[in-house]
Amino acid sequence: MFFHIVLERKIQLHPRYFGPHLREKLVSKLMKEVEGTCSGRHGFVVAITGVEDIGKGLIREGTGFVTFPVKYQCVVFRPFKGEILEAVVTMVNKMGFFAEAGPVQIFVSNHLIPDDMEYQAGDMPNYTTSDGSVKIQKDSEVRLKIMGTRVDATEIFCIGTIKDDFLGVISDPGAAS
């Protein structure tokens, strides 16, 4: 889910940018450095919504660069265990399927797909019920529950389940066409 949070970061600026537009330069550098990053603690920093405070700069010895502590507000996205997400299926294979909910990738193992859905290989691999009424394939939309997360420096991976009440396919691109 999304959060609004205040974070702090030290931004280094070259002296050539000192002048009337120093603040703008700091903010744009902050945006470049921060937006799109991912940390285990906060999740994906989706966007900076405001700058709360820019502290006094500190000249770094030997380089002339100045470090400014910047407090900023941002929107972050972080999935939690137990969270319900609606995700779009991006790939299906015999091990399960991958889906995306915003910037987060979720893998649903075939053990966590209802037992009566079977893998069907082919051009468009899918999981289908024996009567063919429910199909999970690429671009299907599913509602899933997050069972666990793993975070590395730049990405968050989740595993999810659709093997529970009120989880499963929401929309099937095949049915719509």
Binding site: P114, D165, F166, L167, G168, V169, S171
Partner: peptide, 9 residues
């Protein structure tokens, strides 16, 4: 039409 969810056992 929106919330047609498959998995209900």
């Amino acid at each position: 039409p929106f919330k047609v969810v498959a998995s209900k056992r």
